[in-house]
Design a binder for these strands. Structure first.
Lengths: 133, 133
DNA sequence: TATCTGTTATATTACATGTATAACACATAT
DNA sequence: ATATGTGTTATACATGTAATATAACAGATA
């Protein structure tokens, strides 16, 4: 599992980590039941603090993407991922609204925006990391 | 121009304001050359501080969506909006990647995600809750 | 002259982020 | 049993951001 953090980014480290773990699950690189590194191990590997990793893990646990087993440690949710809840749809729409408006103002067409969304979705669930085009 | 702020939201007030002004421009509710309220006026109307409005205006000015005229005050960019820059495309893709992964993990199909994007784009550039213009 | 504009400066409060130690209960391997 | 590793919790500290509060300035306006 590749994880690349940008310590200069305005996006918090714990949020970058959450994003990349979700992308790992979406891409199939992380499968249900797979173990994740311990908070101390991953923190050391990434050169960050234990509590920052713990915060990410807890957020993912709270959303139902991870489980914590006293025996197996932290694993990817093996009993089915959370579905498309009303809360998620609302958040998705709100974020898309912001992106769509910024795109439209800059002259990006409906088709271009829609195709970009489709393209990103495809790259998300298949390829990872590499550049293309 | 309706502006609704959620003071309880985790999204900063200045960012909500930036978003809604861009949506106003995208929808056509705000047209190039249109004047915006003064920082003091808008701050008072919204019940927030002058500097918060000023921060939003400055961000929008810096991105090229607003102009500040010594005579006309703050107006919507009359000389053509910024286009689809490389920096914007990169930011758009990064945000879409996060959304697409979260959607995919929850079982949202490519088609559903794509159609949601298209739908939101359409609602953005057309009518906004019964405005006349 | 008095008022309004954006702008700048300073100060303060509150909160988020990230780090740093330390300790706890539980499980596991030697 | 002892040592080690696990997630978890508590406390503390430094830094930066967000938001507010006053105050002042230069330029435009009525």
């Amino acid at each position: 599992m590749f994880i690349e953090l940008d310590l200069q980014s305005e996006t918090p480290i714990y949020a970058q980590l959450v994003d990349q773990l979700i992308e790992g699950i979406a891409s199939g690189e992380l499968k249900p039941g797979d173990p994740l590194p311990s908070v101390r191990r991953l923190a050391e590997d990434l050169g960050i603090n234990l509590h920052t990793v713990n915060k990410s893990y807890n957020l993912l646990k709270q959303e139902g993407f991870l489980q914590v087993h006293r025996k197996k440690g932290v694993i990817v949710q093996p009993d089915g991922m959370p579905g498309v809840t009303e809360a998620f749809e609302e958040k998705l729409r709100q974020q898309l609204r912001s992106l769509a408006a910024a795109a439209a103002v800059r002259g990006m067409s409906e088709e271009a925006f829609t195709q970009e969304s489709r393209s990103v979705y495809r790259n998300t669930i298949t390829n990872r990391g590499g550049e293309q085009r």
